[in-house]
């Protein structure tokens, strides 16, 4: 495919860790920081930075709550984020041969 252009891909998602975060959230709907860390395989600091970027872009939301009196952050995909993730996958699929 000659018309493929990586610049057309969403820059925010087109990073290995952020893509993994989006894929995990697309499957889990809501999850904790620790579960995301396990799914993505990133360090605490690295994961926090990428989560913040996605949150700033309104791709994900973070809800602070208490479970067993412990504070916990629950992450979820926003409609805008789901749309961007679906568009990203659709674009990748257009690159592949049809048969």
């Amino acid at each position: 495919m000659s018309d493929f252009n990586y610049q057309q891909l969403d820059d925010l998602i087109h990073s290995r860790i952020r893509l993994a975060i989006m894929a995990a959230l697309a499957s889990l709907e809501t999850t904790s920081f620790k579960q995301l860390k396990q799914a993505v395989g990133a360090t605490d600091g690295n994961l926090s930075i990428h989560l913040k970027k996605l949150e700033d872009a309104e791709y994900i939301t973070v809800e602070k709550t208490f479970i067993d009196r412990k504070p916990i952050s629950i992450y979820a995909l926003c409609p805008k984020g789901r749309e961007a993730f679906n568009a990203y996958i659709q674009y990748l699929e257009t690159i592949l041969p049809t048969n």
Binding site: F4, Y6, L28, A39, V40, L92, E93, I95, L96, P97
Partner: peptide, 25 residues
């Protein structure tokens, strides 16, 4: 297979593997 097609395939396989792992939890 072009390099770009290969990259796209790898990317989709990566997404699939993350989603499949998460589905079991």
């Amino acid at each position: 297979m072009t390099n770009q097609t290969k990259k796209a395939q790898e990317e989709l396989a990566f997404i699939r593997s993350i989603m499949e792992d998460s589905q079991r939890s």
